[in-house]
Structure formats: C-alpha cells, structure tokens
Amino acid sequence: MFKSLLRRLKPLPRVVIETERFTLRGVSREWLGRHSFRWAENEAFLDGLGWPPGPYTRRKWTRRFTRSDNRKVFHFAIFPRGSDHLIGSHGVFFTEPGSALLYVAIGDLEWWGKGVVQEVRAALLDFVFDKAGGHRAYGQVHGRNAASMYNYQRLGFRHEGTMRQQRLLPRSNERVDLVMFGLLKEEWLARRSVREMRPDPPSTRNTG
C-alpha cells in the first residue's frame, strides 16, 4: 500500500506530442477529471462514450477515467496549438504487452467534425508503434456511434468482430452491439508510406 501511494505521488513522466494543429500532453486522471468536469453535463458527449448521465460530483467524474502512469496508460489532453484550452482527450492503454486500447473524447463540441480525431489519432499511432513498443492498436465502439466507426475505418483499422447486444446505453436503455476494430503495426507502416508518397487531395474543408 505504501508503495502504491508513493507511485501515485510520483510525478508522471513528461510526454508531449505535436501535430499540425494540436498539442497532446500526457496528464493524470486527476488533472483530466478536474479540467474536463464541464463535459459531465453534456449529453451528446456522454452518449458518444456510452457513459451514464449525471449528476456527477467531480470525484465521481474523475473516477470514470482509468488511472494513468504515462508508461502503459496514457491520457493525452488535446489543446489547439498555442492555446491552453482543453478540447478533448485521447487515451492509449497498453492492456497487454504491445497491445494498445484507444479511446477518444472530444468534449468541446465546437471541434466536432473538424478532423480532430483523424489528426490526433494518426500522431498517436505513430507514437504507439514507433516509440511505445506497440504491435497492435484496437478500439471498441458502440453500435450507434457511426462517427467513431468512421474514424477507425478512415485510418485503416479493420473490423475484427461484433459483440452482439454487449452494451447497454444508459440514457436510452437500448441494448446495442459493440464493434471491435484493430490495426497491426505493419498495416499502419504500409499505410503511412503510401500516404507520404501521395500528394494531398484537394479539400474544401477539414475532414473527419
């Protein structure tokens, strides 16, 4: 117990990743709980994750997040570059050696539909496979979250299976499927090398 307490008090290793538009900073769950508490009343946000509606106390909200150590469990706080305004978080949890579970939560709805997940997740896949010793990344999406399924598909994740009626959506009391996506390191590296050789497509607005 004493060792566990010491581990909790020890500062997390500093992990910072820059993308074209965002800065990702590895934070503790306490930090994330404190700074994201305003999202606890946002029904669209909670529905996307399949989290129950409130009311939440700050302590209860914080405990919804897995404890992070910036070694095997990461919560990356997402900020627009040059700003300290938190817009979301992206988790990377090494649940087994080399196997990283991903989750994302964009709490600032102004940023929905502006390609945040695509840009941030691509950078985090580079991190997982190039720096953190990952061999596989995977995600789980409830069957009504078409936007999240799109985001996995567009980055080359494969649909690996569907767990039928696995998840109960707390607000609608609807039982829905859980859709599993996976991506292997060699698949990501192949996709990245193709992308690096290809010129940017014409774009009328941000994708994702």
């Binding site: 929905w112 936007a147 799109y150 985001n151 009328t204």
Partner: peptide, 9 residues
C-alpha cells in the same frame, strides 16, 4: 473530402 465523420452520421 466532404465525407467526414459528421457527414457520415
């Protein structure tokens, strides 16, 4: 390019 996550929904 317009077929983004919101467009998909």
């Amino acid at each position: 390019p317009e077929w983004d996550s919101i467009g998909h929904v």
